[in-house]
Simulated assay, not measured.
Amino acid sequence: MLVALWFAACDAQAQSFALNPRAVRFASAVVLNDFHTAQAGGGYVFSYDSHETEASLAAKLDHWFSGKDPHAITMDPAEKQALFGFYWAASMMSANSPCFTDIADPACRDDLTRWMTREMDDDPRFIRDYEAARSALGLPGLAPGSH
């Protein structure tokens, strides 16, 4: 009986969203870089409010990643899923990944691609972490083979 309770407690712990500050900084840097590109008239990945500023966007990202308000950022579900993908990839990278010093570094692109590919291949760690964060971040459900 005690063993069953211990496994249940461990499973409940594994299913809760545990924030990774380094991954939050990386994902926020990706969005802010995209925001600057959009402001300069270039192509962009995420949607932004017409009155958005860098400071307001950074604050919204911090609040959203806190898991306290799934509506803190105004993005469509696919954008939130993509943002979580960047966050997850960064959470899986080693602490000395070049991505944490310069996201423009080609070695960062290689590291990011490696983890994003694992996400697309339904890495069980990604599925577990996504489901744990789904409610807190207001993420859409994952359709089998859709990412």
Rank of each mutant, 00 (worst) to 15 (best):
Ala38Asn: 12
Ala136Met: 08
Asp76Ala: 12
Ala143Ile: 08
Cys10Asn: 02
Lys60Glu: 15
Ser56Gly: 14
Asn33Ile: 03
Ala9Lys: 07
Asp129Tyr: 05
Ala9Thr: 08
Leu61Met: 13
Ser66Glu: 09
Asp121Leu: 09
Gly41Asp: 09
Ala12Asp: 05
Trp115Cys: 10
Gln81Ala: 13
Ala29Val: 12
Ser135Phe: 13
Trp88Val: 01
Ala143Lys: 10
Ala132Arg: 11
Ser135Cys: 06
Thr74His: 12
Ser28Thr: 09
Ser56Phe: 14
Phe17Ser: 06
His147Arg: 15
Phe35Gly: 03
Lys68Met: 12
Gly42Ala: 14
Ser135Ile: 15
Leu57Tyr: 10
Glu79Gln: 09
His36Cys: 08
Leu32Ser: 01
Thr53Cys: 03
Gly138Ile: 10
Ala18Met: 08
Arg22Ala: 11
Ala95Lys: 09
Ala12Cys: 07
Val30Leu: 08
Ala23Leu: 00
Asp122Ser: 07
Ala143Glu: 14
His71Ser: 13
Arg109Asn: 07
Pro106Ala: 14
Arg118Tyr: 15
Asp34Leu: 11
Ala8Glu: 15
Met1Pro: 13
Ser97Asp: 03
Gly42Leu: 12
Val45Glu: 06
Arg125Asp: 06
Glu131Ser: 11
Ala72Tyr: 14
Ile127Gln: 12
Leu142Asn: 09
His71Met: 15
Pro144Trp: 14
Tyr130Ser: 01
Pro140Ser: 06
Thr74Val: 11
Trp115Arg: 07
Ser47Leu: 12
Phe100Gly: 01
Gly145Tyr: 02
Ala55Ser: 14
Arg134Leu: 11
Gly141Gln: 07
Tyr48Ser: 03
Arg109Thr: 14
Ala132Asn: 11
Ala38Glu: 05
Tyr87Lys: 00
Glu79Ala: 02
Ile127Lys: 15
Ser91Thr: 06
Phe65Asn: 04
Pro140Thr: 12
Pro21Thr: 10
Asp111Arg: 12
Gly41Pro: 07
Glu54Val: 14
Ala78Pro: 00
His147Trp: 07
Ser91Pro: 02
Asp69Ser: 05
Phe84Lys: 00
Leu19Glu: 11
Thr37Gln: 12
Phe86Pro: 01
Ala18Trp: 04
Pro77Ser: 05
Leu19Tyr: 15
Leu112His: 00
Ala133Arg: 01
Tyr87Thr: 01
Cys108Ile: 06
Ala59Arg: 11
Asp105Phe: 14
Ser28Ile: 08
Ala8Pro: 08
Ala9Trp: 11
Ile73Lys: 01
Leu139Arg: 03
Ala12Pro: 00
Glu131Thr: 09
Ala9Glu: 09
Pro124Cys: 12
Phe126Lys: 02
Cys108Val: 05
Glu131Gln: 09
Tyr130Ala: 02
Pro98Arg: 15
Phe46Trp: 13
Ala9Tyr: 14
Glu54Gln: 14
Phe100Ile: 01
Met75Trp: 13
Asp129Cys: 08
Val30Asn: 07
Arg25Lys: 10
Ala12Thr: 13
Ala14Cys: 10
Glu131Pro: 07
His51Leu: 13
Leu32Arg: 01
His36Asn: 11
Lys60Met: 11
Ala27Leu: 02
Gln81Ser: 11
Trp64Gly: 00
